[in-house]
Amino acid sequence: MSNSSDAVPDPILVVESVVRRFDGLVAVSVDHLAVHRHTITALIGPNGAGKTTLFNVLTGFDRADAGSWKFDGVDVSGWPAYRLARQGMVRTFQLTKALAGLTVLDNMLLGASGQSGERIVVAPFRFRWRAEERATHERALALLDDFGLSARQRDLAATLSGGQRKLLEMARALMVEPKLVMLDEPMAGVNPALVQSLLHHVQRLRDEGRTVVFVEHDMDVVMSISDRVVCMAEGRVIADGTPEEVVDNQAVVDAYLGQRHARAR
């Protein structure tokens, strides 16, 4: 196992000995994993390697049977999902969860944190939250513009295409103003014409000073935008390093990439 991440001076996410079992089957058993701040880290590995389970555990959507993890210097092990999101760690889902019955704009407005109008005792008094709502509105419209969705703001999210829903989900996550964005297969099922646009947005997240972790199967995508690559197999991290280090790693070739890819390099 590669331990190059130990040298990281300022990791935003540090995972220690996290284990998740399902009826005796060990789905995740990660001894150590650190995510560098301001980087794009790709999480790769064969189906069933535990990538999504690790995502779910770290973001509070599943519980860990053992282990701990620190986000931005705070021990957040076992925190519920909503607290982790408020702390600045926001995820998207493999199967897109656009809120189909809400308009595109409402999807965006929902993402903003700390809205006083979301408290039931304040909500009936519009004058108490009108100014705040207007500011949220402007922020949402700016992001929708960025993501090329502003023409659809009044439409129900149900009317968007698969790729547009992925874009909406990413834009909505940004409304939370996250430090770390965790994208579970952001390119899956996306029309090739939109893939470039999504990649561009992922890179912009990093350039704006955020950190991105994403699960991806397409090695061309992984190689083109990642700063770091982590490969999982059978619940464990089998490699962790730069993209070049990881694709040349024999364990990765054996478990995931296969001989064809190795020869091609």
Partner: peptide, 21 residues
């Protein structure tokens, strides 16, 4: 109100709402 927006969103998909804090 924004409260109603959260509640209607929960009807659609709880996990999405959770993921937004």
């Amino acid at each position: 109100s924004p409260w109603g927006r959260v509640v209607r969103a929960i009807r659609e998909d709880e996990d999405a709402v959770r993921s937004l804090g």
